[in-house]
Amino acid sequence: MTVFYLAGALFLLANVVVALARVLRGPTAADRMLSGELMGTTAVAVLLLLYGATGIEALLDVALVFAILAAMAVVTFVRRTWPEDPAADDEGESR
């Protein structure tokens, strides 16, 4: 059973490594942010599976912290890094 969980975690990790291509390719900042979001969700799943493998309950807390902070990066991104600026509407600056 432990091996099953570990294999699942490995699968998810490989999945994320493939998704890194989106960080490299972009093209817009939003696309890069998306892979960050994917990484966040996947990290939660990886931690849950590692919890399944080891039974250390603290891992659920780590996953919970990730889950509650899931919106943090995106919210900062849309409010600070890429705030809606009517003046810059048609050029999409930081592509």
Binding site: V23, G26, A29, S35, G36, M39, A43, L47, I56, T81
Partner: peptide, 24 residues
């Protein structure tokens, strides 16, 4: 921006690495 997103993702994986090192 790519650098910053990479760093954030690095942080996420670091937490997983600490889990693997049994340092919850």
């Amino acid at each position: 921006f790519r650098a910053v997103v990479s760093f954030i993702m690095f942080g996420l994986l670091t937490a997983v690495a600490w889990v693997r090192l049994e340092a919850p």
